[in-house]
Structures are given as C-alpha cells and as structure tokens.
Amino acid sequence: MNIFRLAGDLTHLASVLVLLLKIHTIKSCAGISLKTQELYAIVFATRYLDLFTTYISLYNTLMKLIFLGSSFSIVWYIRKHKIVRRSYDKDQDTFRHYFIVLPCFVLALIIHEKFTVREVLWAFSLYLEAVAILPQLVLLQRTRNIDNLTGQYVFLLGAYRALYILNWIYRYFTEPHFVHWITWISGLVQTLLYADFFYYYFQSMKNNGKLQLPA
C-alpha cells in the first residue's frame, strides 16, 4: 500500500469521525444530507459484499466494517435519534434517491468488468459513490451558512477522493497491468464534483472567514 492510498483512507476515516463527532456530541445534523448518507450506506453495502467471500487483509476488513457500521449508524441517528433528528433540514434536503440509484444500476448492467453479481454490484457502487455527494452539495448551496464541522466533513471527503487519484497514478507506474477504467473515470467524476466546493473552501481560508457559498 502506498502513502497516497493510506492518506486517502485515513482522510476518509477522519471525515466519518468529524461527522460522528458533530452528531454524537453536539447532537445536531444540521446541514447534513440524509439522502447522501443513505446513498453511502447503499454504496458500502453493495461494494463490501465481498467481506464474507474474499479476505484481503486485516486492515481491509477492519476499514470495511468501520465504513459499513458508521454509515448505517449515521442514517439511524438522523432518522431515529430523538434529539438529532429534530435538527435535520428535511424541507431543504429534497433530492430523490431513485434519480441517482436507478441510472447507476442501469449503467452498471451495461458497463462492468465482468458479468457477475459481484462485479456488477461493484461497478454500481462505484457509479453511485461518484454522485452520492450531490444531495449534500445541493443542501450546502441552499443552507449557504455552513458550520465548521459540516465544511470540514465535505472537505475531508473531497480530499480523500483526490488522494485516491494520486494513488492510482502511483499504482499505474509501479504495478504491472494496473488499469481500471471504471474505477478511474467514476473516481475522477466524483473528485471533479468537489471542484466548486474546494474553490470556496480555500477562499474562505485565505480570507480567514466563514465558509459561504454564493447564491
């Protein structure tokens, strides 16, 4: 495992911890999109199905369990926790799941590396992950005044994707036959979706001010 991959995974882990910190200690999910969290739960559930069939490493298994467990518990918190759920911006978070899930599934049926249940679901999870942040970005745009933790959460998620691209470039040059177009293109699309957010995030850091997206 190279340094970019490890840094990417740790950044991903950090993003989840930031979100859990906000939800668990502040008891608030204001500015957090339940739709995005539900899409991530589907992403991990479909991608990590191989947890029971293929063993890669203890690291791999542990991380998968953490991402699965955290994504489902975050959804549970926002939906069911009696204090947290009150802070959910339900009226603002209006993205429809099936507008995203259905096209991703159809795409996975058409474009995959191998026509097996595992590979089609794997491709589906990659396509879905690429666009799962959209409801969250839409919600940020609507809320405009973004609190620190929510801003950090989205920034860390974007950074994780950018680090994965560096990881693929590194692997391409160091490992024989490491070519994965489906992973790369969906990963690139996913990272590009953060471009706008990154721009305003760094601007707000430069001006030492609050993160605010334009109307």
């Binding site: 293929t54 590396e113 794997w122 994965y164 692997r171």
Partner: peptide
C-alpha cells in the same frame, strides 16, 4: 488468477 477490479481498495 485474473482479478478484474482493484478489490484491494476501499
């Protein structure tokens, strides 16, 4: 053994 996707990634 052909591994079609980078399944060692998360």
């Amino acid at each position: 053994d052909y591994e079609p996707v980078a399944h060692d990634e998360l």
